[in-house]
Amino acid sequence: MDKRAGLLIIGHGSEHSSGPLVSACGHAERLLDSGLFAEARVAFLMAGDDPCETLEAMRSQTIHIIPLFMCDGYYTRTVIPKKLKIQGSRTYRDGGLLIYGSPIGVHPGMADILRLRALETCRAAGWDPFGTRLMVIGHGSPKSSASAEVTHRHAAEIRKQSEFISVDCVFIDEPPRIEDWLLDLPAEGPPVVLAGFFAADGLHSSLDIPGWIEAWEERTGSRQGARLRYTGAVGADERVTALIAASIGSEAALPPL
């Protein structure tokens, strides 16, 4: 019998974009190819394979459940545990063990991936990072501070490197909102990298933010990409795969970030 554990990655999912599926499947495939796991599956709370059915179909005696979410909020604390009938970090069931991990967005290494993606964006644009502003875009929520707190925490870690003019945060669903911030952004000034702190390129990341950037460029007469560049969702980055492995104690088996 294969003694290796199984892995179940659970995302929110989207009815409007394939981004969440691409992101989660990419991580699962890379981790399965690494030989760390006997099986690696993905499931979603909406618009995808049901987490309960997927978990039921898995055969590993020990299964690691990793939420592909950016903060430890309502979905990770309440919805997923209730849906899967798990309590705490370890649940023994039918002779097996379910190990429920922290949402990957809270991993300390996420700040460095955000930072590296921003530096890569500067390099591609020909911008000097020391002359560039960095805005980290989180989802935010008027009902919970969890999203804003982790976004600010990662931004503070990036700020310690002193590689950009400034490192600040804006949000989709709470002030300061990225849409409003762009409305107030003047036509002239230093270049800006917008770093998406999202699990995948879903509706907000693939449609809303690019649309708001395009509206700003049309309003100010700026050439496309001349002053604003968006990194896309950090959660889809291949380097996040290593964070998933690290979060369950297998970082030595994957290449470093």
Score class of each variant (00 low, 15 high):
residue 43 A to R: 06
residue 186 P to H: 01
residue 192 V to Y: 04
residue 202 G to Q: 12
residue 19 G to Y: 09
residue 118 A to E: 08
residue 61 Q to V: 05
residue 229 R to D: 04
residue 134 L to R: 10
residue 159 R to M: 08
residue 154 H to Q: 02
residue 168 D to Q: 09
residue 80 I to A: 04
residue 245 A to P: 07
residue 155 A to M: 05
residue 193 V to G: 02
residue 170 V to A: 14
residue 8 L to C: 10
residue 212 W to F: 13
residue 216 W to Y: 10
residue 143 K to F: 06
residue 201 D to E: 15
residue 201 D to Y: 02
residue 106 V to A: 04
residue 119 L to V: 06
residue 225 G to V: 11
residue 153 R to D: 06
residue 127 W to A: 03
residue 84 L to H: 08
residue 172 I to N: 09
residue 28 A to C: 09
residue 123 R to W: 02
residue 234 V to M: 02
residue 60 S to G: 13
residue 24 A to R: 10
residue 33 D to A: 15
residue 187 A to V: 07
residue 93 R to S: 13
residue 256 P to N: 11
residue 224 Q to H: 12
residue 41 R to F: 00
residue 32 L to E: 12
residue 256 P to L: 13
residue 105 G to V: 01
residue 125 A to P: 06
residue 17 S to D: 13
residue 72 D to Y: 06
residue 52 C to W: 04
residue 25 C to A: 12
residue 38 A to W: 01
residue 207 L to I: 13
residue 74 Y to N: 11
residue 130 F to M: 15
residue 216 W to H: 15
residue 229 R to A: 15
residue 47 A to Q: 04
residue 197 F to P: 00
residue 250 S to V: 02
residue 50 D to K: 09
residue 111 A to V: 03
residue 71 C to T: 08
residue 7 L to W: 05
residue 104 I to L: 12
residue 174 E to C: 04
residue 70 M to C: 04
residue 76 T to I: 05
residue 248 I to K: 00
residue 82 K to T: 14
residue 225 G to H: 07
residue 131 G to A: 12
residue 25 C to L: 09
residue 254 L to W: 07
residue 195 A to W: 02
residue 12 H to S: 08
residue 223 R to A: 12
residue 254 L to S: 10
residue 97 L to N: 04
residue 223 R to F: 00
residue 244 I to V: 15
residue 130 F to D: 13
residue 159 R to A: 14
residue 203 L to G: 03
residue 177 R to W: 01
residue 127 W to T: 06
residue 70 M to G: 05
residue 119 L to I: 12
residue 212 W to H: 10
residue 239 R to P: 07
residue 157 E to I: 12
residue 204 H to K: 01
residue 215 A to T: 14
residue 42 V to I: 12
residue 171 F to N: 03
residue 140 G to W: 04
residue 11 G to K: 09
residue 240 V to M: 11
residue 181 W to C: 03
residue 158 I to G: 08
residue 245 A to D: 12
residue 195 A to R: 04
residue 229 R to K: 13
residue 103 P to E: 07
residue 170 V to Q: 11
residue 218 E to T: 11
residue 160 K to S: 07
residue 244 I to M: 15
residue 137 I to A: 03
residue 31 L to C: 05
residue 225 G to M: 11
residue 97 L to C: 14
